[in-house]
Amino acid sequence: MKPPPFAYHAPTTLAEALDALADVGTDGKVLAGGQSLIPLLNMRLAAPGHLVDVNGVAGLDHVSVDASGVRVGALARHADVEADDDAAAAVPLLRQGLRLVAHPVIRNRGTTVGSLAHADPSAEMTAALALLGGSVTAASTAGRRTISAADFFVGPLESSLRTGELLVDAHFPRPPAGSGTAFTELARRHGDYAMCGVAALVTLDDDLRVTAARAAYLSVAPVPLVLDLTEAVAGRTPDTADFDAAGRLVRGRLDPEGDIHATAEYRAHLAEVLTARALREAAGNAVRR
């Protein structure tokens, strides 16, 4: 479990980093938090010829909050985002999800944007970005482009990021006024990848009646799937809405795969149960906001 040989690049500016990535092309990988890449290297499941370590690049570790939402820089660690009270106030789903990301030591090193770039459909932040309709910014020597979450996640561990591109930040928009969110998941052990996880967003009108209910799913689809479940609970108040019915709406709309930890049938069952739980909690949070 030692990595194969690779050339190591340690740029200190974004321009240097993008030049390095352009030079190495498909034979290069970006190293940020390394929480997924380093194990892949040690297991020799990946053998890039070049690692471009962006940890020394200045100006990428920001967590900034404005009227539109929270912008997270490429080097902001999960722990930085989780601890940011302004970010949690603007987009509560961030802290709600981040506390479920592995363990504190992993969150201390792992980056939120790196997790998005890894495009793991069992990751919390991919689901959060998808649920909120957020976007990422990719930079290369050719320039910058903004990619919506819907267009970014293509398949398991597969994104629309192009060779030579570096994800420089991600934007998590504020949920609409009157909204509440919640994040719930079930893992075999505390901090493990979830067997199923649900991020939910419920929006209420001024009479506290549901106008929108959406949920994003992890570990049950190849990409962070978002389902609109408004029809099951529209017009109801949080205490009269039938969230279990919303859970049943999920049935047939997910086609999870089984693995050694959970069968496909069990995951589908969890998706129903957790949908109801997450929506109920999100609706409760919407009332309190």
Binding site: L186, R188, M195, H261, A262, T263, E265, Y266, H269
Partner: peptide, 8 residues
Amino acid sequence: VSPSELFH
């Protein structure tokens, strides 16, 4: 016995 097995 795992939760998945108990479910089944």
